[in-house]
Amino acid sequence: MAGMIIAIVLMVAGVFFLTVSALGLLRFPDFYARTHAVGKSETLGSILTLSGLAVYNGLELSTVKILFILGFVLVANPTATHAIARAALRTGLQPWTRKKVEPREKRTEPS
């Protein structure tokens, strides 16, 4: 019963962060800021949802598999985010700024 409650709490928190991620995708002004929402919130959202599932399952073989997937998400998600952001930078997309805070050459790709 206690395990059930923990699982529910974890999954609700995960779904909350996934919702935040979707909201961020809609609300943020430019590509890079949106990547923030996807890169962070989605990772934690999926991790919380998956650990909720693991707790719900209890000690089983499939729980071990879920934990493997969890570790994979933890490594793969930031890497993919990094690849996407780098691709955007290389095509010369300038970030949205409120005011000039950096000299212009700092923002561009060095090579």
Binding site: P29, Y32, E102, K106
Partner: peptide, 8 residues
């Protein structure tokens, strides 16, 4: 919506 983004 309080953001002030930039690349450093």
């Amino acid at each position: 919506g309080r953001i002030n983004p930039g690349i450093v």
